[in-house]
Design a protein around this nucleic acid. Sequence first.
DNA 1: CGGGCGATACCCT
DNA 2: GGGTATCGCCCGA
Length: 204
Amino acid sequence: MSGTLRGASAWPGAPLPRAFYHRDSRIVAPQLLNKVLASADGRSGRIVEVEAYGGAIDPAAHTYRGKTVRNATMFGPPGHMYVYFTYGMHWCCNAVCGDDGEGAGVLVRALEPFTGLEQMRRARPRSASDRDLCRGPARLTQALGISGIQDGIDLVAAQAGFTIVDDGIAPPRRPARATRVGLSRATDLLWRWYVPDNRYVSKP
DNA sequence: CGGGCGATACCCT
DNA sequence: GGGTATCGCCCGA
């Protein structure tokens, strides 16, 4: 019996409480900047870029046309992880926000690698530079080992291997704000936030 | 370090 | 059948 996994003490900070996510995704998104997305096996990265989605007012959100098998997690309670498959090969990771049944969330678009870089490199052998390990929503899921298996896990209970923690670094006082990436609808909404002048942001 | 391009499979129309 | 909440490779600065 090895002692590599020691439960809650393994996290690099305190998991964010349910109430943190139980707000409008546009409020939660910038608050997630500088928090740490962590895996129980020791991999983690500081969140440096996010996008808000959801509600009946957002035609770019997966939830816009109602509940389906794919987006069911996003219509569930806040503080869970919504993982979806896109472009035929990539997984992307969201934190479900707002009320149970609302259908909102925050897409994590980029991390600054924090711990477990060796494991991340092993998970992404094609990534030449450390800068590219978690720079992009599908790159970071690959680096941390997130896929559809984790869709729906509870980030607050943190017993399914992943959580988001606060390690004492505050969000930027003036986060940079921009339009979301890769959309054909609602292209005017400034629902993307990132840490200014951070070289791990995917599209500054 | 930034732009252009092909690859890829699932979902919903 | 069309359209993706994208990436890696290649090229040029």
